[in-house]
Design a protein around this nucleic acid. Structure first.
Lengths: 194, 194, 194, 194
DNA sequence: CATGAATGAGAGTTCATTCAT
DNA sequence: GATGAATGAACTCTCATTCAT
């Protein structure tokens, strides 16, 4: 019953995911997950040996799905600037949301688990986002919407600002206005200079 | 013997500080601190009721000292650009250091303890850094070293980039080259445009 | 395995009961019960959360069994006076016994836990005893063995005397002669007046 | 400074007394008393080695004062029945009071500390009360107010009823009406029989 | 495969008691 | 005498992890 087994594994991961979203990483115990899943204590150990293992799997799923979702939400005939604006808006929404996905849990997790190398979840996520933005900027430059000498660096800069906003939001809290200000600033950097 | 008592309190806080630096916040137990301090279990409770309380005090000390240290390390006859470069260099050093101070612990702590309002440690730290940078930029603009239309926003942007670099460093790791690239980028934003 | 679980719960309660009998209520710790039961620290918490909870359950069991036991021990063809004498004799036995059941523990417990209202263990125990005695007196009056104008009050009075003897026995100690004297006195109150 | 020392000892005992009145015996720690007295932790040990020792001293004081107080509160020209009624009324008041003196603490204490023999506090208290009541009854019989064949036993009976009411009040709670009923019943036993 | 009872390690916390000052 | 800091024992409670069924 490798099928049923895979089914259950997926069920556990999805349930665990919502637990991590709510409580972060360090606050989640095997017991928490067992209870959220309504399975037996021993049952969980049949599939996973620790919260760490579970979390890594959750992230793996996350990555798979992320690629899908991203592409779908882009309107067919949008210009690069529009798409970038859309992307930033989406980031802003999640930034300020009360349910910030797995951000906090990931940070907590990777504070302690530096492993991963090239496959590091956060690294891959960051790099692929940089790449997307870079492409958008390049397209924007081509179409004359943007002015930018080094799209790669500009993209990277934007992502670091977003990362800074994210951590600020998760720790000290941040106002919508402040987020808008920062986003506007980076957008102006692409447009205003002629 | 309020004197001796204060002495010991300070000793505990300093010892605890290094424990937090090494293990973050959530991994530190009262027992850890007790053992690091070489005092008795009950002895610690004479001074502090929880790791949270201790950590808050550590931050308070940190803040007091931070103000002092900062001013002293600035060379007398340096131009704004020099000072800013110095500041960023210092940030870079801490960013990449194996002993990243209390950054990680603070993040972990404030993931869960949102209290603080205006007096929020991270907020104050961030805001005062923004202010310093803003002043430097304004001075730089005046002296012709910099070009910048809105020093406040530029300063804030720099700080968010730094914050992004910080969290990146603490989680996925980051290369010196990458940090240099980002710092160079923001500096160019101030200089290159004329 | 609700069966085995119930079995163990009962085992714990019975063991705990003897611990309470020996040490009262306040002197009993979860650790004491754990050790008496020869189970693990955490094992006890699987069934009960506190000594208070355990004690309340012990009392509940006590009550269930009390009803059974009482009826059985009455000889078939005994007159009211005989039965009352028997009852008092039984009370006396327990009063003076080195193993005074849960009396002491109950007192200690209810000094602090006044909850219960109508279902208060001691109240129910007292009231039902009063009722039994009242019935006996009324039967005795009918059969001419007793003289009594208000059986209810006489019964209540007897029980308060018994209660007084009980606490006296548990605190300052009391001689058998003294108990006999008091019992005789209340019996005479029912008989002698004609 | 045996004088100052005695002074302080007395101060501690009086303070401790009120602590015992409020919290019973077992719930009182040396720390509680230290704090109530506003003295140093070590300071208390200079005078007493344990709560038990303190409590015994408190009881000794209690006994000394009890004798004084009792006599004073009796009206000059009252008949035996009046005085007995007065005594019972006073008992009732204390019975129902939210601040039941040291009753609870004493019970708790003597559950565990059976020592005392002839000098047992509760025994002496009980016996002297019995004696007083006996004298009153005898006086009442003489004056024709009471009818009683054995004043000693009647007095003892009354005291046991009071003791029963006391413990009932402290554990399950008791209504004023119930107390009145019992008191009336024992008084009628002295009067009604002709 | 699945269960959930059981174990035991470990963290938190409170106090009685001592002792240097 | 008096202080109160310091110690360490004792207790409570929670989980990760195992294992018989």
């Amino acid at each position: 019953m490798s099928d049923k087994s895979a089914q259950k594994k997926k069920y556990i991961l999805e349930t665990a995911r919502s637990v991590f979203m709510e409580k972060g990483f360090k606050n989640v115990t095997m017991k928490d997950i067992v209870e959220a899943c309504n399975i037996s204590r021993g049952g969980l150990y049949l599939y996973f040996a620790s919260t760490k293992e579970i979390f890594l799997e959750v992230l793996r799923l996350e990555q798979l799905e992320a690629d899908d979702v991203f592409e779908k939400s882009i309107p067919e005939e949008a210009g690069p600037a529009d798409i970038l604006a859309l992307f930033l808006k989406e980031q802003k929404r999640e930034l300020l949301s009360k349910k910030p996905g797995l951000t906090k849990a990931s940070y907590e997790f990777f504070f302690e688990n530096h492993e991963g190398g090239k496959n590091h979840f956060l690294k891959k996520q960051f790099d692929s986002a940089v790449l997307v933005i870079q492409k958008l900027i390049e397209a924007g430059v081509e179409s004359g919407e943007f002015y930018c000498e080094d799209a790669r660096r500009a993209a990277s800069n934007i992502m670091y600002v977003l990362e800074g906003l994210k951590i600020a939001s998760q720790t000290r809290g941040i106002s919508e206005a402040a987020v808008d200000r920062e986003i506007l600033y980076v957008m102006q950097g692409l447009i205003a200079e002629e």
